[in-house]
Design a protein around this nucleic acid. Structure first.
Lengths: 128, 128
DNA sequence: CAGTATCCTGCAGGATACTG
DNA sequence: CAGTATCCTGCAGGATACTG
């Protein structure tokens, strides 16, 4: 049993914050985003979720499956075929998450401008 | 200069993902949530954002200020008084974030049920 | 293919002490 | 009060090897 305990420890400290972390976390959000596009097999997901390792994808999918956001369907063939897709709940949450991401992305010009201003102020503190 | 470089390094890898991480990250989300309630001073925020250390609150506020989500207003009195509040952009983003959180919290019964099912299946694999 | 098991490292972030 | 500077540690998460 890898570090399956990870979410147990987490679970102890969090009812919903835990799920939120699965949803908004680095790999969680990217995985939900990928699965919002459709159903995928493990290695398809690995390719879609840029930069994710086997271990982290596996861990992320387990967490999301346990939370009831992702459905895992395994065919007992050889070689095995496993498909992952969002549940209804997962789709609802992914939608909101994507909404938040879209909002932030749409406002990036403002963010970039703020950053430029902030940095400029630090570079030339005399002008204040 | 503490680890101010942290967000520079980040910034190199991310245009919007970086901001997203500030928004959805552990302290970022809690800080936005707290500031959505009103304007607060540094130590007021420390008390409201449960469990945050001085260092992390300072770092978080800097990141959010730089991104243009939080406005910092310092009075040059002695002792100093500094107030933090959301900008218009910060409010828009906080609203969406809170919407996501509310959705997840509202659906926690489903999540808990899914977890119970998942765990039960693991505990008694014979019943499958 | 779809994972799990081990080992290892960087860095988020806590604790503590200090400053204008 | 509102922070910054230093030091230190646990753990997220990568790399690699292995399995049904």
């Amino acid at each position: 049993m890898t570090d399956d305990l990870a979410y147990d420890v987490f679970a102890r400290a969090c009812p919903s914050r835990c799920t939120l972390e699965h949803v908004t976390g680095r790999w969680g959000s990217l995985t939900l985003g990928a699965l919002y596009e459709g159903s995928f097999r493990f290695n398809e997901l690995r390719r879609r979720v840029d930069g994710v390792s086997e271990k982290m994808l596996s861990q992320t999918l387990h967490a999301l499956e346990r939370d009831g956001l992702v459905h895992r369907e395994a065919q007992p063939t050889n070689p095995p075929r496993v498909d992952y897709r969002l549940t209804a709940l997962g789709r609802d949450i992914a939608e909101r998450l994507i909404g938040l991401i879209a909002l932030v992305e749409g406002r990036m010009p403002e963010v970039e401008a703020a950053r430029a201003g902030y940095d400029a102020e630090r570079a030339a503190p005399a002008s204040g």
